[in-house]
Computed example of a mutant assay.
Amino acid sequence: MPDIRMLELMFTCERTIFIVLEDHLHRPAWVDMPDKRVIQPQPNQGIIDNTTYDVLRPGVQINSKSLRDQADSSVLSTTAGVLVENDAGEAFMTAASHGIGEDGTVWKGGRADRIIGKAAVEIPFTDISLLKPKKDVAFVYKTFETEAAGPSPKFICLRTSEDDMPCGPCYLNSTYTGNMVGALVHKSVRLFKPDTPTTCTQRDLRYVVYDWMHTGQVEGNDSKVQPSDGTCGSAVWNGDGVILGFYQHYVSEGPWAGFAASVSASAVVDAGYRLARHPC
């Protein structure tokens, strides 16, 4: 049916299927969003921590200068993902592409003099970039422990495209949200193809897999616990320590309000990377 353009397929845990023809998922247009400046801690607005920790870990704040022009003070702020490696054993840190400025340089917390490394690889359409860390940067696979969540999890691997559809509890712990517990309920496949579908061939098609979790923030309109844009790039995992994906955005309005989308970690695996065996 060449006159109908399907944007996305969504599969639910109830074994139902949604065919998305219009953007009711309210995906943000990153290129049109204003630069996000570093947020100072405001306890009445949520749990935010821009501390410059000596050791990097999943979910801590990272920053990048928006433009190459040194006169421009705009700063992008997101969070660290996990450390991955290629077949040659070369290590990289995952991060949100839209949170990395023009020159690719990323630093810790609020300290522009604490450089982590530079963007080296971008996985197309996923908003995931891989940073090449400096040799003196230490990284551990441990999130911060909390009284409610108990000890930090032990991460064992990245989810692959061969794994079953994830359902059930999932977790995220970032400096913008603190520890979050959600439920994975949907999986979608977003299609990317040329603007002229009639000339599109199978070779032209690209797709990205997303997981959708619900954490109930929309009930009661409690803005204190809704993830902010800075949460992007944080790892989402399950109780077995499998990295399911990387947080991308939260839907605050429309029929999908209360859901948050994460890019499946299988995109990183399919690009030729695995969870690094020995964090640096």
Rank of each mutant, 00 (worst) to 15 (best):
N238P: 01
A261F: 14
T198H: 08
A257V: 13
L205N: 11
G241I: 10
A257I: 14
L205W: 08
D222G: 03
G216M: 06
D204I: 12
T201E: 07
R203P: 06
A257M: 09
D222T: 11
P255M: 07
G239T: 12
V225L: 15
M213A: 14
H214P: 04
A261G: 15
S262F: 02
L205I: 13
E219L: 12
V251D: 04
G230K: 02
A261T: 06
K224A: 15
A265D: 01
G241V: 03
G233Q: 08
K193D: 06
Q202G: 15
P255C: 13
S234Y: 00
V218S: 08
V236Y: 06
G230T: 00
W212L: 12
V251W: 03
E253D: 10
D195C: 10
G233W: 03
A235I: 00
I243P: 02
W237E: 06
V218G: 15
V209D: 03
V209A: 02
F259N: 03
F246V: 05
G254F: 11
G245I: 04
E253T: 12
F259Q: 04
T201M: 08
I243K: 00
T201N: 12
N238G: 05
A257S: 13
G254H: 10
G245A: 12
F259P: 00
K193G: 14
G245R: 07
H214S: 15
C200D: 12
Y210T: 00
C232S: 09
D211I: 07
G254R: 05
G241C: 10
V236P: 00
Y210M: 03
T196F: 11
H214M: 13
M213K: 02
K193Q: 11
A257E: 07
P255A: 09
M213Y: 02
S223F: 13
A261C: 11
V208A: 03
R203A: 14
K193Y: 09
D211G: 15
N238M: 08
Y210Q: 04
K193S: 09
Q226N: 09
V225F: 01
V209F: 15
A265W: 05
Y250I: 01
D204Y: 05
S252H: 02
W237D: 08
V208N: 04
T198P: 01
V209I: 13
G220D: 06
E219N: 08
T215M: 08
T198Y: 03
E219H: 08
